[in-house]
């Protein structure tokens, strides 16, 4: 694997995370519990899709085969996606969606904080831009997790169930492989494993305020970021997201 291949893979991982989660969150558009939440979710999705344009745009540039961010988003099939499994899971109820958002935002804010010091200025610039938006996302998702966790017995039970369901997907965010090793030695990105302590401190503070119990097991489902194996949910999601390009190849407006 050359350095450029590794950088390409790293950028796909960053861009596919925000693309897939951005699309998932956009599925709430028009069906959220209340209007304010609908607008908030749509705005969050929009920020993530915007960040995707930067990450995948740069990925296409680094790859050097003339693929644009749109080409990468709409013309790849499941096995070429490099997002973690956490973000491709179905939304579940509103509480589950916000729990997933919080677990992701907490990682994204930690990761982007480090990437702002990347040796690759293009990566540092995107991180600087995205981290301002993510700071706002994590503030809101954390508030909502606390509000619902420390809410009524019913909302508490739903949030605990969401955490129990999603927590076994968190560990994949901190897995390392040869791509990460190449990024570390080039000074482009940190070793994901090195983010875990900061992450744990952040989520434990919020989840304890939310009166929720963090599951003890560190077992993790994985295979998304390496492309080894996605869940069956991603394929279904792509049939929606890529429908237009599949039905009318090359369509533009």
């Amino acid at each position: 694997m050359t350095d450029q291949d590794a950088l390409f893979q790293f950028l796909l991982r960053m861009g596919d995370n925000t693309l897939v989660l951005g699309h998932r969150v956009s599925e709430w558009c028009g069906v959220s519990p209340v209007l304010e939440e609908d607008i908030a979710l749509a705005n969050t999705a929009l920020d993530m899709i915007g960040q995707t344009q930067f990450w995948l745009g740069l990925a296409g540039e680094v790859e050097g085969k003339g693929r644009s961010a749109d080409d990468l988003a709409f013309l790849r099939d499941v096995w070429d996606f490099r997002n973690v499994l956490l973000v491709e899971l179905p939304n579940g109820d509103f509480g589950q969606t916000l729990m997933r958002q919080f677990l992701f935002d907490a990682w994204a804010s930690t990761m982007l904080g480090r990437l702002m010091y990347s040796s690759d200025k293009r990566v540092a610039d995107i991180a600087e831009k995205a981290s301002k938006e993510v700071a706002y996302h994590v503030e809101r998702s954390a508030d909502t997790v606390v509000g619902l966790g420390d809410g009524t017995p019913e909302s508490h039970a739903k949030m605990q169930a969401a955490l129990d369901l999603l927590y076994p997907y968190v560990g994949e965010l901190f897995e390392s492989d040869a791509v990460d090793a190449a990024m570390v030695s080039a000074g482009i990105a940190p070793d994901p494993a090195s983010l875990r302590d900061d992450y744990d401190t952040l989520i434990k503070r919020v989840l304890s305020e939310a009166t929720l119990n963090v599951p003890a097991s560190k077992f993790t489902h994985k295979g998304g970021r390496t492309g080894y194996m996605h869940t069956e949910h991603l394929g279904h999601m792509l049939t929606q997201m890529q429908w237009l390009q599949r039905a009318y190849p090359g369509a533009t407006w």
Partner: peptide, 13 residues
């Protein structure tokens, strides 16, 4: 504050 997000990304309600 009614919502952290408003009618465009740059606004809150």
């Amino acid at each position: 504050k009614t919502s952290q997000f408003g009618s465009t990304p740059c606004k809150a309600l």
